[in-house]
Design a protein around this nucleic acid. Structure first.
Length: 223
DNA sequence: ATCCCGAGGG
DNA sequence: CCCTCTGGAT
């Protein structure tokens, strides 16, 4: 397959955005939150866990703790018990506690608004930081690249990179920055509903005409 | 069995 | 760079 010219790729990316906007007009963050701290904790909890369960646990957590100082003061055993059903509970509890300790010690109990400060927090990588910045703070700092965004970006030919960092850079060059947060939600929604890891439903896919990986293979060979 | 919006450590 | 952490949902 010949390499797509860069203007052609940008045009196709824009068309993909339009198709996604049409298919998922209400795409949004499916983690429930009312404050940046709630979203930060919810996102830390979301690794290898369904949003539905994260939302239940986040609600319970914030019934017990309201502020970063409250989490900082909560015994680790109690935190582990509270987050147990989200999986990786020891690591998540430890990270949440260390994270909140740092929020209190260095940020006046507030969730910081920069990539550097966020990624220095325990349990917070670029992906989590981008979720908080893009959704709770509505800042276009980067593109959330999770497992869905990686997979779909590759299938759609928007990036050939394999690391999340490189994929993010590629996407930032292709998508208008006002759409970065929305774009992630579109791909995540589409990745969950249609372009699944195992059995992508290409025959039903709204993006098939725009996707180099679509199973466009003619069902029947023409005579 | 296989999947779910990762991050840290060796 | 790969390995590990971990439980619920389907």
């Amino acid at each position: 397959m010949r390499r797509e010219s860069s203007p052609a790729l940008a045009t196709r990316a824009a068309a993909i955005c339009r198709a996604l906007a049409g298919a998922y007009p209400d795409a949004h963050c499916e983690l429930d939150y009312k404050t940046p701290l709630e979203l930060l904790i919810a996102t830390i909890l979301s690794a290898q866990c369904t949003d539905k369960r994260v939302n239940i646990v986040t609600m319970e957590l914030f019934r017990v703790c309201k502020t970063a100082a409250d989490f900082d003061a909560l015994p680790i055993e109690q935190l582990e018990e509270l987050v147990k059903t989200t999986g990786f509970f020891r690591a998540k509890a430890k990270n949440i506690k260390a994270c909140c300790t740092a929020l209190v010690a260095r940020h006046g109990g507030e969730v910081p608004r920069t990539m550097d400060e966020l990624t220095q927090l325990a349990g917070v990588g670029r992906k989590t930081a981008n979720v908080v910045l893009g959704n709770a703070y509505e800042m276009n700092v980067g593109v959330v690249v999770d497992t869905h965004v990686s997979r779909l970006s590759q299938r759609l030919g928007l990036s050939k990179a394999t690391t999340p960092e490189k994929i993010e850079t590629d996407l930032m060059g292709l998508i208008a920055c006002e759409q970065w947060a929305l774009f992630s939600h579109w791909l995540i929604w589409h990745g969950r509903r249609r372009c699944k890891a195992r059995k992508p439903e290409c025959s039903e896919c709204e993006l098939a005409m725009l996707c180099p990986s679509a199973n466009n293979a003619p069902k029947k060979k023409r005579a």
